[in-house]
Amino acid sequence: MIEKLTVSATINSLKIITEYIVKVANLGGLDKKATYKLRLATDELATNIINYAYTENNGVGDILFESEISDEVIMIKIKDLGIPFDPTTKLETELKTINIPIEERKIGGLGIFLVFDGVDQFFYERIDNENISTLIIYRK
């Protein structure tokens, strides 16, 4: 089963994205905590796309979601046609941040860390001008 969603990359789309992800999580039989963490992971990736992906195009562009539920996993692909951005390159910096007392931290993001924390597998690909993030959650 494949569920798709296309929304414009604007902050107002977050609500629709959340409804979509909760629907997919429910179809995949995820519990409340796993659903929350998946919503968080998706929100963080979508917010990055909204804030940065289309800066060279006056912020205009789309975010595409494709979710596939199999017996073992829920696989969600999040795509945009914006500037190349590999979220995995941010992870190391954010992992270091977590061990710094908050008095000494810069005001910065921890979103990518929360993406990795919220799913079982994450990978990124750049194919034909598309950024593709793939999130995998085990259904058990």
């Binding site: 929350y36 919503r39 968080l40 929100d43 963080e44 917010t47 908050i102 008095e103 931290r105 005001i107 910065g108 993001g109 921890l110 979103g111 929360l114």
Partner: peptide
């Protein structure tokens, strides 16, 4: 019921000002 990393940033700003 829900808070993303944007909310963490908010908490950090408030904590800093309070300190």
């Amino acid at each position: 019921a829900y808070m993303s990393s944007a909310g963490l940033r908010t908490l950090l700003s408030i904590h800093r000002q309070a300190t």
